[in-house]
């Protein structure tokens, strides 16, 4: 709101100028206000009842028909799958935004040392295995698409650190397809379910497990590749289109 006063910008190294005093006063005021906020919030939190079931019972009752037995996965991919659909959109959107800022910043000069090289050779296959395991195990134990996807993303980051770059052939449409696979499969599944007479994201119970696994597999791939692509920090260049 103080757009009309530019004197805030002048940060003088001299001690106790007018600006510094003003800043000190501002901070004191800020600290006081924030302490008030924290106290209020703390009071609000403590005023909550010490026991509340939330939705845990309802989730437990419906877990059987959800297609998975890990309640968190059931919430993420069935009960509140619509949130997850939009969230995959958010992730893709972040990448679109980063790409719109321009091409990959120029390559960094530092070459990977032998340590990083060997490390990536050893770790990358292991990480991919772990990702696959997390994806599979997510149906009934801690894990799932996001965890698996991020481990896959970490493998990608390691590869990038070791100097690997995607081949020119992969950079066009194929890369974009893997990036949208998660959201795309979600949207397609939704559309098909609506076409056959169901509701948005209403899985028939007998197909629930399969559909969830399908969506999760696509999501894992997309999340992994998207996170690695975000790490590159710009649009990979290989001819403008395809």
């Amino acid at each position: 709101m103080q757009q009309s006063q530019p004197l805030k910008k002048t940060i003088n190294p001299k001690p106790m100028t007018e600006g510094v005093k003003k800043q000190l006063l501002f901070r004191l005021l800020l600290v006081a206000l924030l302490s008030l906020l924290a106290t209020g919030l703390g009071y609000a939190v403590l005023s909550l009842p010490s026991s509340a079931p939330g939705l845990s019972e309802l989730v437990a009752e419906n877990l059987e028909t959800s297609g998975v037995s890990n309640p968190v996965t059931a919430v993420l991919l069935n009960f509140r799958a619509y949130d997850t659909l939009l969230e995959l959109g958010v992730l893709l959107l972040a990448l679109l935004g980063v790409w719109s800022f321009g091409a990959v910043p120029e390559r960094r000069e530092s070459f990977p040392g032998p340590v990083l090289d060997t490390l990536s050779r050893l770790l990358v296959p292991l990480l991919i295995l772990v990702a696959g395991y997390l994806l599979w195990v997510g149906a009934h134990a801690p894990g799932g698409a996001f965890q698996a996807g991020s481990v896959l993303g970490a493998a990608g980051v390691l590869l990038l650190l070791a100097g690997w770059r995607p081949g020119a052939r992969f950079v066009g449409l194929p890369l974009r397809i893997t990036l949208v696979a998660g959201l795309g499969v979600f949207v397609i599944v939704s559309a098909v379910l609506i076409l056959v007479g169901g509701r948005l994201l209403e899985y028939p119970p007998s197909f629930a497990a399969t559909l969830i696994l399908l969506i999760e597999a696509a999501a894992t791939l997309s999340i992994g590749i998207t996170l690695a692509a975000l790490f590159i920090g710009g649009r990979p260049e290989a001819g403008p289109n395809n």
Binding site: R108, F146, G153, V157, F231, G233
Partner: peptide
């Protein structure tokens, strides 16, 4: 909350950290 713990370790600490370090280097 083991599911959240896994997500936090991989995304919150790991990948966010990598993104931050890369951005700092640039």
């Amino acid at each position: 909350a083991p599911d959240v713990a896994l997500a936090e370790a991989a995304i919150g600490a790991g990948l966010t950290g990598a993104l931050l370090l890369a951005a700092l280097a640039r």
